[in-house]
Amino acid sequence: MMMNSHGCRRGALPRLGLGLGLAAACGLAWAGTVWAAEAEAPPAPGGLGALAAAEGVPVVVTATASSSPADSGASLVEQYREGGGVGRQSSRTHVVLFWFGAAAALLGAIAVIVARRPMRSALGLLVVVLATAGLYLLLRAELLAALQVLIYAGAVVVLLVFVITFLDQGAVTAPGGRRLPVRVLAVAAIVYVLYLAAHELFAMGLGSRIPPAADFGSTASVGHALFTTFVIPFEAISALLLTAIVGAVAVAKGRADGTPTTAGGALSGAGESKGTPAAGHDEGGE
C-alpha cells in the first residue's frame, strides 16, 4: 500500500494541479456561459443587468425602477407564457444549460462516491459545486451562486484538499468500501427511491404559475430580505460560525503535550485510556 502510494505520488502533483485547474476552468467557463446567456436575454429586466446597474450607477437604478416596472412586468408575463414557465430566458438556452449542468453535477457526484483516492473525490465535489452554482444562476439566485463559488469552491474544497495533502497518503487511501451486500443494498435503495421520485414528481404539476418579479433574486432584494426579515437568524449564524471556528481549533490543536483533546479522543477511543479512570481499560487500544 505504501509503496503503491509513493509510486503514484511522484507524478501526482502536476497531474493533480492540472486536474484542479481543468475542473475549475470548465466550471467557470460554464458559469460564464450562463452569465452571458442571462445577460443577453432580450428583456433582462432584473437579474444580472439590474445587479450591475445597482452596483455601478445607483441613479440609473432608481430611474429604471420608477419608469419600467409596468412594461417589463408585462413582457415577463408574456415570455413566461411563451416559454411555459421558464421566466425571462429563452427556453432553448435554459434547457441546454440545465441539462449540461445536471449532467456535470451527477458525474461529479458519482466521482465523489466511487473514487478510491479522496483527492479525486474532492475534484468531483468541486465539479458538483461549480455546476450547482451555474444552476443557481439559471434559477435566478445570483448572490447564492457567487457565495457558492466563494464559500464552497473557495473555502470548503480548499480546506478538504489541504487536509488530504496534509495527511499520509497511504492512510488516507486505505479504507475501501463496504462489503458487497451493503453496496448492493445501498444501490437498490437508491434506485427504488429514484423510481418513486421520478414517478411521483412527473405525475403532479408542481410550481405556481406566478412569474417572478423583475428584481427577483437580485443581490439588492435578497440583501434587503436578509437584513430585515431574517436579521435575527443572520446574527445567530455569525455566532454559530464563531463557535465552529473555536471548536475546530480546539479539536484539531490538541493539548500542549501533543495528545489530542478529549473531544477528538472521545470519538476515537483514547478518552477511556487517559482521561476517565472510571471508563476502564477493557478495550483500550494500547
Partner: peptide, 25 residues
C-alpha cells in the same frame, strides 16, 4: 451554506484528530 462551512471545519478537525490517534481516517 454557512452551516455546511462550519460543519466542514469541525468535521475536518475531528478527522485530523482521529488521524493523530489512530494513523487512519
Amino acid at each position: 451554506v454557512a452551516i455546511a462551512a462550519a460543519e466542514a471545519a469541525v468535521g475536518l478537525a475531528i478527522i485530523v484528530s482521529l488521524y493523530r490517534l489512530r494513523r487512519s481516517v
